[in-house]
Write a protein that binds this DNA or RNA. Structure first.
Lengths: 186, 186
DNA sequence: CCGCTATCGAACATTGTATTTGTTATATTA
DNA sequence: TAATATAACAAATACAATGTTCGATAGCGG
């Protein structure tokens, strides 16, 4: 990739994070980003169609580390050992901890919704596969249960990051399974 | 209140709901509302400072029925009998069922966030009081638990309405407590 | 070194918000 | 029912932000 493109991509992303320390997502204008990143107007629009597309790209960056397929080939699509899912969750929390500062910005404003929406996408299949290895009873409708398991994970994440990640990733994972396992084995 | 004011208030609210059947919240412009409601521009701004303020007002309308203080004086601030909270929840689902159509519109677009935010406000104290009548163990941090109980209620509501309220209010309430009671008495 | 292309920046069209102003219509109350 | 208050209205306007276009310039890779 052309160095120039790379440079502006980085400049824009960095500017975005910088601005997020000071302003709320919806208050940040494209112009703000251009000024902060020292990038021409038309250049920005050659890279991203809208401000929202930029945010999606940034989320994708984050998730590409979190849900990296290559790093954990053996723990995918095999939940015969229930611990695999536990490992993935812990792994996720570790990565979120690394991106703590950026995430605090994103989750502290309207951008939260987009982040959550994207995260839901990634967790969807994953949780679905998991739940039906563990879940035996037919107390709940399938999708209600899956929705609750996903939602609980997401909301716990939000709570954790909002509170500045005081607990360790392992501790948070413990909390998570303490919240959902009683339901799965009701 | 002046009949004229009442009339425009109703016209605006009704126009809003009508538009929500066709468009997403963020796609609805003030102009759309003016046209649909047959109301002058300046008139609108004499009633609401912004479109968002209108939405808050509409949410307040809905919640005023749901969390009506006068209707249930005996079941407030007394959770010595745990069933009181159960009744409030069922009562809530009943009202949401009545407002089903409107809620589907609101929850089906960006307006969801504002609705949820407002609902959180109403549920906050209520759930807090409830949880610590029931909860005995010190497995979770207080606010984590409260957050989870509130969130689960909200997300279950969203799931239910999105799915067109196929279950009865009582049924949904059952699901809710089946989701949270195992956690509270872990 | 040459050709390709990314960047620049200014201008522009567009859309939407919110305010202001003066006029008209409709309530309330005396 | 007449007088007073005030709500509704239309039109004009300021303003803020988005997204597009275009010709010139500078930097990259082969």
């Amino acid at each position: 990739m052309d160095r120039r493109q790379l440079k502006t991509q980085q400049a824009i992303r960095q500017a975005f994070f910088e601005l997020m320390k000071r302003k709320t997502y919806s208050k940040i204008t494209v112009q703000d980003i251009l000024d902060e990143a020292n990038v021409g107007r038309s250049t920005f629009y050659e890279h991203f169609r809208t401000k929202e597309e930029l945010l999606h790209a940034i989320c994708a960056d984050i998730f590409s580390h979190v849900f990296c397929p290559s790093l954990e080939p053996e723990m995918r699509h095999d939940f015969s050992n229930t611990n695999d899912f536990r490992h993935i969750v812990i792994h996720m929390f570790y990565h979120f901890y690394e991106d703590k500062e950026e995430l605090k910005g994103i989750l502290g404003s309207e951008s939260k919704e987009i982040f959550v929406q994207d995260l839901r996408g990634y967790l969807g299949e994953l949780v679905y596969d998991y739940v039906f290895k563990v879940y035996k009873n037919a107390v709940f409708p399938e999708d209600l249960l899956v929705n609750h398991i996903i939602t609980s994970l997401i909301e716990l994440t939000l709570w954790w990051i909002k509170g500045d990640c005081k607990e360790t990733p392992e501790q948070i994972a413990e909390y998570y399974f303490a919240l959902i396992l009683p339901v799965l084995s009701a």
